[in-house]
Amino acid sequence: MEMNRRDLFRIGGKLLVLASAGATLEQIMGSEPAPEAYKMADHWWGMIVDIDKCIGCGSCVRACSNENQVPNGYFRTWVERYEVPEGYVNPIVTSPEGAINGFPLPKPTNFKAFFVPKLCNHCADSPCTQVCPVGATFVSPDGVVLVDKEYCLGCRYCVQACPYGCRYLHPETETVDKCTLCYHRITKGLTTACCENCPTQARQLVDFKNPKDPVHEFLRTHKVSVLKPQMATEAKVYYNNLDGAVR
């Protein structure tokens, strides 16, 4: 077949129109944002607690209790008030009712004093999950330590294994219960109930796998520590300006 210049342009033009139409069509159809399903592999959850910001109001404890229907007298998170005498001998630690109603007026002392909010550290290498005889407690693929309450036997082995005292036996279900890092909220794009309601932003939920998360800048510019680093649990709750007296 012989083709002159005119034919070439004609065919080329047709092809170009066809291709661009196809591309536009694909853009219209394809770019429609599908409802972003939660991908566990894209997240690695943790928390930052800034001791310098905590005012001991107990908002986090109340929020946690309401959000998760924590039974009375049990706590998934609580706040401790430390009074540390010079020389670090016998610090006084109080947490009346987990500080669910804040703290009463303190007796005047000249000790160093500060608040420490506590919760499950969602350890990556957690002793509590290792001791479970049935596989009812585990670290989820996105780094949250959970208890499968339909599978838990209530043997309390994990309650003893947790170095931070973050687990309890639910008095009604008689299975182990603990902080879920508000798994039902964070997987829907919300923050945890405690972080949402902290009036001074002393607690912040962080996602270590999100490169844009402020946690990376925070960890680079602050002197942070985890609780009981000697336990090598790979805890993911980082405390800013944590005093050496805190256990």
Binding site: N66, P141, Y183, A193
Partner: peptide
């Protein structure tokens, strides 16, 4: 995913929310 029941993750996610944000 590991030594646990994978469908429980869905159960944990489906709990009701109390704080609207």
């Amino acid at each position: 995913y590991g030594h646990y029941r994978a469908p429980f993750l869905e159960t944990a996610r489906s709990k009701p929310i109390h704080y609207a944000g």
